[in-house]
Amino acid sequence: MSGLSPEQDARARDSEALTLKQLLSVGQKTVADAIGVSESTVSRWKEGEIERWCRVLALLGLRIVPSDVQCHPPQYIQALKTLAELGLQAEKKRPGPLGWD
Rank of each mutant, 00 (worst) to 15 (best):
G3H: 11
S5D: 03
Q8S: 04
D9V: 00
D9H: 11
R11Q: 13
A12N: 08
A12K: 11
E16I: 05
E16T: 11
E16Y: 06
L18Q: 03
T19E: 06
K21P: 06
K21A: 13
L23F: 08
L23N: 02
S25G: 00
G27H: 06
Q28W: 05
K29Q: 14
T30N: 13
T30C: 08
A32T: 08
A32M: 09
D33V: 07
A34K: 14
A34N: 11
I35H: 08
T41N: 14
V42S: 10
V42A: 13
V42Y: 07
S43R: 15
S43V: 01
R44M: 14
R44A: 12
R44L: 14
W45V: 05
E49K: 12
I50K: 01
R52C: 00
W53N: 13
C54K: 04
R55P: 04
V56H: 13
L59S: 14
G61R: 10
I64G: 05
I64L: 15
V65G: 02
P66G: 03
D68W: 12
D68V: 05
D68H: 11
V69S: 00
Q70W: 04
C71T: 10
C71D: 01
P73K: 06
P73Q: 07
Y76P: 00
I77D: 06
Q78D: 13
A79M: 04
L80N: 09
K81C: 07
T82V: 08
L83A: 12
L83I: 07
A84E: 12
E85H: 09
G87I: 00
Q89H: 04
A90Y: 02
K92H: 10
K93Y: 02
R94N: 12
P95K: 07
G96F: 02
G96Y: 00
L98V: 05
L98R: 09
G99V: 09
G99F: 02
G99W: 02
G99C: 07
